[in-house]
């Protein structure tokens, strides 16, 4: 079976090492701002990440995570405000409970913590964001392409 994961030849080349695609769902107030701070501080991190902004982690539906894997992500990062810091007071608490169950459900089905990552990154934690992205990319790279064996991946 061939690996369905391919990147545009322009940058990756065909023989290059596996470069994972990482989709991040982040909240607007903390992690998006933390990523902005990483930028204004000129911190460097891996270019594999694509951020999708939502107002709050409360809005980050588990079905989005599922869809991300289905549509080509090798890893998913979900990140928002630290407990108690939610701009909407409790959106992240609601989110945390959903994720607690959802990540365990996905773990049972083979999508484990090497691919699905959760974090709290505040607006002040630009360094944490940069380090986090690098670490997640490294872990997903090690886990390899999201296996063609995995039923969550759509095959064309």
């Amino acid at each position: 079976m061939t690996d369905t994961h391919t990147k545009p030849a322009s940058s990756q080349g065909t023989q290059g090492p596996f470069e994972p695609t990482l989709v991040a769902f982040v909240c607007n107030w903390c992690t998006y701002a933390g990523a902005d701070l990483a930028g204004t501080s000129r911190l460097k991190y891996a270019a594999n990440i694509r951020i999708i902004k939502l107002p709050c982690t409360g809005r980050i539906d588990p079905l989005l995570v599922l869809k991300a894997f289905e549509s080509g992500a090798d890893g998913v990062l979900v990140s928002g405000c630290h407990p108690g810091d939610c701009h909407y007071t409790s959106g992240n608490f609601h989110a945390r409970r959903r994720w607690a169950i959802f990540h365990r459900l996905l773990e049972l089905t083979g999508i484990d913590s090497s691919r699905l990552h959760f974090s709290w990154v505040s607006a002040a934690e630009g360094q944490k964001f940069a380090d986090l992205v690098n670490d997640v990319v490294a872990k997903v790279r090690q886990a390899g392409p999201f296996d063609a064996v995995n039923p969550a991946r759509r095959r064309s």
Binding site: T109, G110, D147, V149, P151
Partner: peptide, 9 residues
Amino acid sequence: ANDRAAFWR
């Protein structure tokens, strides 16, 4: 993990 994925597939 990959065996679990295969099981569910």
